[in-house]
């Protein structure tokens, strides 16, 4: 019988304690951050969308090879001698035209492994994380600065140069044969 009354009292009393706690919380400020209006400050080393500073890129393909999901596609064309490709900001001479530098962010796993091997530090993580798209194809970001005409021009330039070189080589290979007079029969 004593237990019965104690149980009743405990039941009412503990409910009141609980109500006191929830009532306190009714007036504590909410912890909600209203996201699109208010944004959380990101940590310094946060990993989000990649950016490629194509002016500094030397087309070494190291980032593409480091990528575990192969989301970086790079194609390059060699520059012809005499053509000025400029230098990177840390003084390296560029030797390749980067005709294609595509990153597919639908595949990218934001591991940052591509960032470390870059010799010119031209690929790095930014703090942009809002880039959702309606079409999956829009996730393929093209970083190459060259236009299609330019790319074709560079390609034909290089092919011409290559052909010329071939021709020269062939000529060089052929010349000594023609140049050296056949041994005169004694």
């Amino acid at each position: 019988m004593k237990q019965y009354f104690k149980d009743t009292w405990d039941g009412i009393w503990t409910v009141l304690i609980g109500m006191k706690i929830t009532f306190k919380h009714l007036f504590t400020p909410a912890v909600t951050i209203q996201y699109p209006d208010v944004k959380v400050k990101l940590p310094d080393r946060v990993r989000n969308r990649l950016y490629v500073n194509i002016d500094d890129c030397i087309g070494c393909d190291q980032c593409s090879r480091a990528c575990p999901v192969s989301c970086i596609e790079i194609e390059t064309v060699k520059g012809v001698p005499g053509e000025d490709l400029g230098t990177t900001s840390n003084g390296k001479k560029k030797a390749l035209w980067v005709t294609k530098f595509n990153i597919d962010f639908a595949k990218c796993c934001y591991c940052q492994l591509c960032v470390f091997p870059c010799p010119t530090e031209c690929i790095y993580m930014t703090d942009i994380y809002e880039f959702s798209e309606y079409d999956r194809n829009n996730f393929v970001y093209n970083f190459s600065a060259l236009t299609k005409e330019e790319i074709n021009q560079k390609k034909t330039n290089f092919e011409k140069f290559q052909a010329e070189k071939e021709a020269q080589k062939a000529a060089a290979a052929a010349k000594p044969k023609t140049d050296t007079p056949p041994a005169a029969p004694n």
């Binding site: 919380h25 009714l26 909410a30 912890v31």
Partner: peptide
Amino acid sequence: VSAHMQDRL
């Protein structure tokens, strides 16, 4: 009421 009791908005 439910939101504010759970410290939400």
